[in-house]
């Protein structure tokens, strides 16, 4: 099992990001697979405005779908962009390039994150 003490003593080493990459990944593996099956349970699901509107404004299921979508959005963006950042660092680029690319990833995450949140919460 993960040793908690080793983690709490390793601030700044990237250990938390490493652990959270695993945790978010395991959650996403389940949620995204479920999302894919849900969105293809019939041909309209998620592919017409009416079906999206009815699902997200459903008095019983709506809040659950929104929670599912917002969770996938937040975890997915962080997991994907942190993973991309890991790939970037493995190329051993010069520090300037690293920070330029990190800035690009952070900005993409914030911009698309806001866009995604406002889209889901518009319902």
């Amino acid at each position: 099992m993960v040793r908690t003490r080793a983690f709490t003593r390793s601030s700044g080493s990237g250990a938390w990001a490493w652990l959270f990459q695993r945790i978010s990944g395991l959650v996403l593996a389940v949620l995204v697979t479920l999302h894919y099956f849900l969105m293809h349970s019939n041909p309209d699901r998620g592919h017409t405005f009416k079906s999206v509107y009815q699902a997200l404004t459903d008095p019983v299921w709506g809040p659950w779908f929104k929670t599912l979508d917002l969770t996938m959005l937040a975890l997915g963006l962080w997991h994907g962009l942190n993973g991309t950042w890991n790939v970037v660092r493995d190329f051993d680029l010069r520090a300037g390039w690293n920070y330029a690319l990190l800035g690009l990833l952070v900005m993409a995450g914030l911009a698309v994150g806001v866009l995604g949140f406002t889209t889901i919460l518009a319902f």
């Binding site: 994907g80 962009l81 993973g83 991309t84 790939v87 993409a108 698309v112 406002t118």
Partner: peptide, 26 residues
């Protein structure tokens, strides 16, 4: 894992961008 991860990250950004039209009010 790396290649599929990069592809899925690209798709996720595109996916959210595609859905922004849902915000158009009824």
């Amino acid at each position: 894992h790396r290649l599929s991860g990069l592809a899925l990250t690209g798709y996720l950004l595109m996916h959210i961008w595609t859905l922004k039209g849902l915000q158009e009010s009824i």
